[in-house]
Deep mutational scan, measured.
Amino acid sequence: GATAVSEWTERKTADGKTYYYNNRTLESTWEKPQELK
């Protein structure tokens, strides 16, 4: 079946920190989402 992984995108802030952005829920998080573990 379909997985939720594609909803999350790994992004970088202007100062180079990595965060994760969810295209479906429009939420962002510093922690790696469960779906990516």
Rank of each mutant, 00 (worst) to 15 (best):
G1N: 13
G1L: 13
G1F: 13
G1E: 12
G1S: 14
G1H: 14
G1T: 12
G1M: 13
A2D: 14
A2V: 14
A2S: 13
A2L: 14
A2W: 11
T3K: 04
T3I: 13
T3V: 13
T3E: 13
T3D: 13
A4N: 14
A4D: 14
A4K: 05
V5R: 03
V5W: 11
V5I: 13
V5T: 13
S6M: 10
S6K: 09
S6P: 12
S6W: 09
E7Y: 07
E7P: 06
E7L: 04
E7C: 05
E7R: 03
E7M: 06
W8Y: 02
W8M: 00
W8S: 00
T9F: 07
T9D: 10
T9V: 15
T9S: 14
T9W: 06
T9R: 06
E10Q: 06
E10V: 10
E10F: 03
R11K: 15
R11L: 14
R11A: 08
R11E: 07
K12I: 13
K12R: 11
K12V: 14
K12Y: 12
T13E: 04
T13A: 07
T13N: 09
T13M: 05
T13W: 03
T13G: 07
T13R: 03
T13I: 02
T13Q: 04
A14R: 08
A14K: 11
A14V: 11
A14D: 10
A14I: 10
D15S: 10
D15H: 06
D15C: 11
D15N: 10
K17Q: 10
K17L: 11
K17E: 09
K17Y: 09
T18S: 07
T18K: 07
T18D: 03
T18E: 03
T18A: 05
T18Y: 06
Y19E: 05
Y19K: 02
Y19Q: 03
Y19P: 01
Y19V: 03
Y19R: 01
Y19M: 04
Y20M: 01
Y21Q: 06
Y21T: 05
Y21V: 09
N22H: 02
N22V: 00
N22Y: 00
N22G: 00
N22D: 01
N23I: 15
N23F: 09
N23W: 11
N23M: 11
R24T: 12
R24N: 11
R24Q: 12
T25E: 02
T25K: 01
T25W: 01
T25L: 03
T25I: 01
L26G: 15
L26P: 01
L26I: 02
L26H: 15
E27A: 06
E27T: 07
E27V: 09
E27Q: 10
E27D: 06
S28V: 15
S28R: 10
S28D: 04
S28Q: 11
T29W: 05
T29H: 05
T29A: 08
T29G: 02
W30G: 04
W30S: 07
W30V: 06
W30A: 05
W30N: 06
W30E: 06
W30I: 04
E31A: 08
E31K: 08
E31T: 10
E31D: 11
E31F: 10
E31V: 11
K32R: 11
K32I: 11
P33E: 02
P33I: 02
P33R: 01
P33N: 02
P33C: 03
P33Q: 02
P33W: 02
Q34C: 09
Q34G: 10
Q34L: 13
Q34N: 13
Q34K: 09
Q34I: 12
Q34V: 12
E35Q: 09
E35A: 11
E35R: 04
E35Y: 05
E35F: 06
L36Y: 11
L36V: 07
K37T: 14
K37M: 15
K37S: 14
K37V: 15
K37E: 14
